[in-house]
């Protein structure tokens, strides 16, 4: 009689006890993931429910009135926009140039590059309120007062919190984001492309400008937009460096103080004489702030996928 070569198996069916660990893991991880959605949903629904009804042309185009219980948030929108723009103009070139040095010019075992990278990592970990204090100490007191003494005969012109110093403080805060994103984008450009360019008689600078940077652009732009999104929502760094509690006029000069959406939220939520009356405006302001942040992230996402598809 032929015995089978393969050992017999009683059953391939699993018992409940075998399935339990898998089920528990699935449930646990799933629940945590769901919690995330829930949190986001709660925030979104709450803000939309209370905020949408406040949104109106008047809200977006008027300064606050009557102890911030009426009117709109135009100065805060304009202030935030100018602040972010100025910050971008400062941080993106500085960050991109730093990354180009790190990635293209510094020798491989460069001490300097090591120190720069270390600084970038540490900068990214500094709490934002510390940047605010640094901004007051460095920009307002040292640089601003110095300028006043040297150029304005001691008359306080730049020696106070204002647009340019707040932007500078935010620029330093967001610098690591730009440097890291740009460096990654540059590293992702294949060496073969650099070789091709160099072998055709291009200089290093021509290679960077004509081959490497265009190729790295999507990554650089993504980094820039993420930095802008981060900068637009930060409050702590601008608390002491230029944000104003209440200022119906729009800023027109670099040394004007300004209103800011994030700071306005804080003011409406905690500093208002009449909480109940300012609450709807608070929701409206939060909604505008959220919309701006999401729009930034969405732009970053679209830019990235567009450019990827093209390359």
């Amino acid at each position: 009689m032929n015995s089978p070569a393969v050992r017999g198996v009683r059953s391939f069916a699993s018992r409940p006890i075998d399935r339990a660990p898998g089920l528990i893991t699935t449930a646990l991880t799933g629940a945590c993931a769901f919690l995330l959605i829930l949190m986001f949903g709660v925030v979104l629904v709450d803000v939309l429910r209370h905020g949408l009804s406040v949104l109106s042309w008047e809200f977006l185009s008027q300064p606050p009135r009557e102890g911030m219980t009426k009117g709109g948030i135009l100065p805060a929108i304009v202030g935030t926009t100018l602040l972010t723009l100025l910050m971008t103009v400062m941080t993106v070139p500085a960050g991109v140039l730093t990354a180009i040095y790190l990635c293209e010019y510094s020798p491989r075992d460069s001490r300097l590059a090591y120190v720069v990278r270390l600084c970038v990592k540490n900068l990214a970990g500094v709490p934002s309120i510390v940047y605010g204090l640094f901004g007051v100490g460095f920009f307002v007191s040292a640089l601003g007062s110095g300028l006043d003494g040297a150029l304005f005969g001691g008359h306080t012109t730049y020696g106070k919190g204002c647009l340019v110093w707040a932007s500078g403080t935010l620029a330093i805060l967001t610098l690591p984001v730009v440097v890291v994103a740009t460096e990654e984008a540059l590293l992702a450009v294949p060496r073969e492309m650099r070789d091709a360019s160099l072998a055709l008689g291009a200089t290093k600078l021509q290679t960077i400008v004509r081959v490497v940077l265009p190729r790295a652009l999507p990554g650089i732009l993504t980094g820039a937009i993420l930095a802008i999104g981060r900068g637009a929502g930060e409050v702590a760094p601008i608390l002491f460096t230029g944000a104003a509690y209440y200022l119906p006029e729009l800023p027109t000069h670099m040394n004007d103080p300004f209103m800011n959406l994030g700071y306005h939220v804080y003011v409406l939520a905690t500093q208002s004489p009449n909480m109940d009356q300012t609450r709807p405006l608070l929701y409206g302001t939060v909604l505008v702030l959220l919309v701006i942040s999401f729009a930034m992230d969405l732009t970053a996402f679209v830019v990235r996928s567009r450019m990827r598809a093209k390359a």
């Binding site: 492309m193 070789d195 360019s197 200089t203 021509q206 081959v211 265009p214």
Partner: peptide, 30 residues
């Protein structure tokens, strides 16, 4: 300047992420 007189072709094709025309014109343009 040496490299402008000595052409090189690599092991793996390494066209630049540009048009065909711009690839060939690259050395002349730089």
């Amino acid at each position: 300047l040496v490299r402008r007189h000595v052409g090189m072709v690599f092991q793996r094709p390494n066209p630049l992420a540009k048009s065909i025309f711009d690839n060939v014109a690259y050395g002349l343009r730089v």
